[in-house]
């Protein structure tokens, strides 16, 4: 990969960073544990590294947007995450903003 490729990669990462949080919040309207969440996001086309996803989940929980609990499943204890009421409200607001940005960009591109 040349310098151009590197530049594309860093700009792409920057572009994706905020959207990943949005994807995680939206996917957690339904309760999931880390591993299945990552698989679901990958199936949606949002690949995420473990070293990014887990700290993000923890941060969102500290911020009160997620709730979690430990439960036994398939003979192992797993940590299940779900969107909290605050998280639900935040997700709606962020989705609004996301649509606004998207509309603006579409408009600019069509011009």
């Amino acid at each position: 990969m040349g310098a151009d490729g590197d530049l594309y990669e860093s700009l792409r990462l920057e572009l994706r960073r905020g959207s990943l949080t949005l994807g995680v919040l939206a996917r957690l309207r339904e309760e999931r544990y880390g591993y299945t969440l990552r698989q679901a996001l990958a199936a949606d086309g949002l690949e995420m590294e473990e070293s990014t996803l887990y700290p993000l989940l923890r941060r969102l929980e500290t911020q009160g947007l997620l709730v979690s609990e430990w439960r036994e499943e398939e003979k192992r204890r797993k940590r299940f995450y779900k969107l909290s009421a605050d998280g639900e409200a935040m997700l709606l607001r962020l989705l609004d903003e996301w649509r606004r940005i998207s509309r603006s960009l579409e408009k600019i591109i069509e011009d």
Binding site: Y33, G34, Y35, E50, Y54, R58, W70, R76, R77, K78, R79
Partner: peptide
Amino acid sequence: AQREDIIAELRDTILSG
């Protein structure tokens, strides 16, 4: 303070994989 919690989750993820 967070060690046990994080490691348990990480262990589950790695073993699931």
